[in-house]
């Protein structure tokens, strides 16, 4: 028998978040709610004597499947808000009525039957489940393995975008750059020829003049650069001797 308190807690943390499926506007909120539902279901499995399945539920659903959903949501844009206004005529009310009717009907039917509960509850521990899986249901496991491989390959194929043009070689990329008027060589790195290697210090050209564009644009906007003038002054100081550092 099951502890009623535990049941009601499980019922609460499954049904209430599940309603977010119908009312939440943001898909991320829905996904997080479903994670909660999955955890609740895992708890229900453990309560019902299926600890292995409960753990698998947590690992697979909350850990893998729902995270996969979140990844996809990231890909397609978290901000996609959905207009809840119904566009198909009658869809909302017929759908709600049918779904609610189905639920009510099932509840009423199931509520009316009484099934004798076994006095010897089995405990679905991993060793018990493993023996059954790899003895009685070994063929099914094999088939499921094929199914998973096929699904993985299928997902790869579906998300694969074929290259329409041949890949551009480095030579072509460089040629285009030079033709567009870019520097044939790299930009000078900041801090080169500076007194101390730092990003905020412009590089010096061979004549000792600072090169402005060697400093990051961001630092300039933030006014976090140094002019390098003081280094030039020091450079021009006659008292300075070679090897004085």
């Amino acid at each position: 028998m099951v502890n009623p308190v535990l049941f009601w807690i499980i019922a609460a943390i499954t049904v209430i978040p599940a309603f977010s499926l119908l009312f939440a506007r943001k898909a991320v909120h829905v996904a997080m709610s479903i994670v909660l539902v999955m955890v609740g279901l895992a708890a229900a499995y453990i309560t019902l004597g299926a600890p292995f399945l409960g753990m698998v539920q947590i690992v697979v659903y909350t850990g893998a499947v729902m995270m996969l959903f979140l990844f996809v949501l990231m890909l397609v844009g978290v901000d996609q808000r959905e207009d809840l206004k119904e566009t198909i005529k009658g869809q909302r009310w017929i759908g709600l009525f049918t779904a609610a009717g189905l639920g009510a009907f099932l509840v009423s039917v199931v509520g009316r039957v009484t099934v004798a509960v076994s006095d010897t509850p089995v405990q679905g521990d991993p060793d018990v489940v493993a023996v059954l899986l790899f003895e009685k249901y070994v063929l099914v496991i094999e088939v499921l393995g094929f199914l998973l491989i096929t699904a993985a390959v299928g997902a790869l194929v579906l998300t694969h975008t074929p290259r329409l043009k041949p890949r551009r070689t480095q030579l072509e990329v460089q040629r285009d750059r030079v033709l567009a008027g870019a520097d044939p060589v790299n930009k000078p790195m900041p801090g080169v020829y500076a007194r101390h290697n730092a990003l905020d210090v412009p590089a010096l050209d061979p004549e000792g003049q600072p090169i402005d564009h060697s400093v990051s644009r961001v630092l300039k906007i933030r006014n976090q650069t140094q002019e390098g003038v003081e280094f030039r002054a020091a450079l021009e100081d006659p008292s300075r001797k070679e090897g004085d550092r």
Partner: peptide
């Protein structure tokens, strides 16, 4: 019964 309710919510 709980499963029935969840099923109906999912279907909706």
């Amino acid at each position: 019964i709980l499963a029935s309710i969840l099923f109906a919510i999912g279907a909706a």
